[in-house]
Write a protein that binds this DNA or RNA. Structure first.
Length: 157
DNA sequence: GCCAACGTTGGC
DNA sequence: GCCAACGTTGGC
């Protein structure tokens, strides 16, 4: 069992959007970065849990928890010539881009990136590293447990 | 909207 | 296969 952090632009799919999807599931489409693809294709397992992060927005940070609910499969948008995510090199036999499906587990309180930076326990978290642009990163057991405790707190004083 | 830090592309 | 130029990400 492995933990992850997955960034989504709320303008594309927010935590509320996910909650309102049929079966509260969504294909994690549009990842066009090899490292992130490899995490989904090679390492993610059904049942893995992930932090749902809003990025490229006014208030970036943690908004919820989701679960990986499918094996890796080709990203469907790469075959659509009208999509921004179209990939001319992909064929149905040989897809370049792979992804998993993700299921809503719960909304959490918002934890801002500034708050996360205040905890020494999290100073090595991938998402907090300078220059990090990866939209999918592994989260260690320790980081996950610590964040779990933060989420149980009503409000941070 | 700026820009640092990456990632990708393509000429050589 | 090097590397300059260009493109993208995403916090600020």
């Amino acid at each position: 069992m492995q933990y992850w952090l997955m960034k989504s632009e709320p303008g594309e799919v927010s935590i509320d959007d996910l909650q309102n999807m049929p079966e509260q599931k969504v294909e994690w489409f549009g990842i066009r970065n090899y490292q992130a693809r490899n995490f989904m294709r090679d390492q993610m397992k059904i049942g893995d849990l992930a932090i749902f992060w809003h990025s490229s927005c006014k208030e970036p940070g943690i908004y919820g928890i989701v679960e990986i609910c499918s094996d890796a499969h080709p990203d469907s948008l790469q075959f659509d010539p009208n999509s921004d995510y179209y990939e001319p090199k992909s064929t149905t036999d040989k897809a370049v881009w792979w992804c998993v499906d993700v299921k809503f587990i719960k909304k959490t309180r918002y934890i801002s990136i500034q708050e996360l930076r205040t905890y020494p326990e999290l100073e090595e978290m991938r998402v907090l590293q300078k220059g990090n642009r990866l939209s999918i990163t592994p989260v260690t057991d320790k980081e996950w447990q610590f964040i779990g405790k933060l989420l149980d707190q009503k409000i941070k004083s």
